[in-house]
């Protein structure tokens, strides 16, 4: 398989998962109950596992099919490619994750709301990809869809409780929904190189999310401002800090094995 744009497509999906795992990893030992620390660690591990499969696949896409479009060419230091080269030796301009995933986490409402908004997109995405005519991508999707179904379930479970809990939790949950909502539009923007058009996932996503928000007695924000650019390597200021931390040790020892 070396469809034009496949490399970028795999990076987009893989970077969403990797950056999500990195943010969840920052949250260790900070949950409201120790039981929840374990749940969020499981979710981080699932997202990290998906990222590794997708980046490993991207690393094997033939060189001739690598585009130079996104944020400039890959740095020479990133070759030969493997999952770690792609995770640790690309700069933020070469990352293709959606901005939603890179925003710094706020309180627990922010953590579970972001997970709801992302997983509600990943569930129909991987359901559809599991039937793609690219067998490797289909196999990754078949595995990942079971995991993200659980992430969606877990996030929805919490958003319902926070929205319909106390006045304080309702306020915090609504604030998180309002803050994150604009960043969801980017998930459905055109994405070349993949077998499905993200726009076709929107109806599913909308149905899932609005149902949870309604049960949670939370208001669906009006659509308006729709920040984007992550798929083209134009990120928020937050991503380069995230990468500086994530990549610091790896980059300090060029050529080392770990």
């Amino acid at each position: 398989m070396s469809r034009p744009g496949l490399f970028d497509y795999l990076l987009a999906l893989g970077d969403d998962a990797l950056v999500t795992a990195q943010r969840l990893g920052e949250w260790y030992a900070s949950s409201p109950a120790m039981e929840e620390d374990i749940a969020l660690a499981n979710i981080a591990l699932d997202q990290l596992g998906a990222a590794r499969l997708l980046l490993s696949y991207a690393a094997e896409v033939p060189d001739t099919a690598l585009p130079a479009r996104t944020g400039g060419p890959l740095p020479v230091a990133a070759r030969p490619l493997d999952e770690d080269a792609l995770a640790y030796r690309r700069d933020d301009r070469q990352f293709r994750n959606a901005l939603l995933t890179e925003l710094p986490h706020g309180d627990f409402a922010h953590v579970v709301t972001r997970l709801l908004l992302l997983a509600a997109y990943q569930v129909p995405l991987y359901d559809r990809l599991a039937a793609a005519d690219d067998p490797r991508l289909a196999a990754i999707a078949a595995k990942t869809r079971k995991e993200v179904a659980y992430h969606l379930d877990h996030a929805a479970t919490w958003v319902r409780r926070l929205g319909d809990g106390t006045a304080e939790s309702h306020g915090r949950a609504q604030a998180a929904v309002d803050a994150l909502w604009p960043y969801t539009h980017e998930l459905f923007a055109p994405l070349a190189g993949g077998p499905i058009d993200p726009a076709t996932l929107r109806a599913d996503w909308e149905r899932t999310v609005t149902a949870v928000l309604a049960e949670a007695t939370l208001a669906r924000p009006a659509d308006g401002w729709a920040p984007g650019g992550g798929r083209d390597g134009l990120h928020t200021e937050h991503l380069s800090y995230l990468l500086a931390e994530m990549q610091s040790l790896h980059r300090a020892h060029p050529g080392a094995r770990w």
Partner: peptide, 20 residues
């Protein structure tokens, strides 16, 4: 055993804690 505010969360926590 474990602690959870309700059955739904208890089941999810049990999955994460006891079937890793």
């Amino acid at each position: 055993s474990l602690h959870a505010p309700d059955a739904e969360l208890a089941l999810r926590h049990a999955r994460d804690l006891y079937t890793r």
